[in-house]
Each structure stands twice: as C-alpha cells, then as structure tokens.
C-alpha cells in the first residue's frame, strides 16, 4: 500500500515535469494495452486571415470551429494535414475505444438530468 502511494507520487511528479509535453507523453501511458490507432485533433487557434490552403486543410479534416475535436485514423495523409496546421491544433494519439462522434461528444458534455426513468405504465396491462 505504502509503496503504491510512493509510486503514484513519483508518477505525479514526473507528469508535473513533463507537463508541457503532456500530449506527447500521454499515448504510451494512457493506453491500457490497446493499440493507439487514432489522432484526437482539437483546433486551438483560429485560421482567420491565414492562407486558403490552411483553411482548406481544416475543412478537409472536418474542423469548422475553434475547440472542436475530431478523430482520424493514423494514415500518412492525415499526418501531413496535421503537420500543415501544427501551429493551430493540439494532437493526441488515442485507441479505437476513445473515438467519439460529434453526437457522442455532445452527450458526454451534457449535465445529468437528476433522475432516471425506471419504467412506464403506459401501454402496460391493466
């Protein structure tokens, strides 16, 4: 138990040191044995007033607004697109299970409603 706390403390201090490169260090540690297959790309800086090829690259990646997150497979064409807009985005490697569609991301953001529907008497036998 005690050694476990020590280890977690050492891990946390290591993560503090490499905080600036957290996105780079994350893939190796965050995966639970699952292969990392996708890029998680988030637009941090707007492409306003940048050349059309940069704006077109964002559109090609399916990014339309700042702080939008999209997922793409590890392929050379996607890698090239990411490197074209490397000043504007943050990128992380994630496993297949972490991939979310736009709708799923929205559901995860939502606050809980505070109740759960246990069942309905409508349509039940009288």
């Amino acid at each position: 138990m005690f050694s476990a706390t020590l280890r977690s403390r050492a891990a946390s201090s290591a993560s503090l040191q490499s905080r600036s490169l957290a996105t780079a260090a994350a893939p190796s540690s965050s995966s639970s044995g699952e292969p990392l297959t996708h890029y998680r790309i988030t637009l941090r800086r707007s492409a306003i007033a940048l050349p059309m090829n940069i704006k077109g690259t964002l559109a090609a990646l399916g990014i339309h607004r700042r702080l939008q997150t999209v997922f793409h497979r590890h392929t050379p064409d996607i890698a090239g697109k990411i490197l074209t807009i490397k000043e504007l985005v943050t990128v992380e490697n994630v496993p297949e299970s972490a991939v979310r569609t736009k709708w799923e991301q929205r559901q995860e953001r939502k606050a809980s409603r505070g109740y759960e529907v246990a069942g309905s008497k409508l349509g039940a036998e009288p």
């Binding site: 600036s20 490197l83 490397k86 943050t90």
Partner: peptide, 20 residues
Amino acid sequence: KQVDSVIEAVRASGVQCKAL
C-alpha cells in the same frame, strides 16, 4: 513547445511521410 508536442505525437503514431 506546443508545436513540438504536435510533431512528437505524429512521430509517435508511427506513420511515415515527407511532411513528417
């Protein structure tokens, strides 16, 4: 440093391309 981390993430993904 932020840009370095993006390049590092792409390198860690294992793809090979001229841009990289």
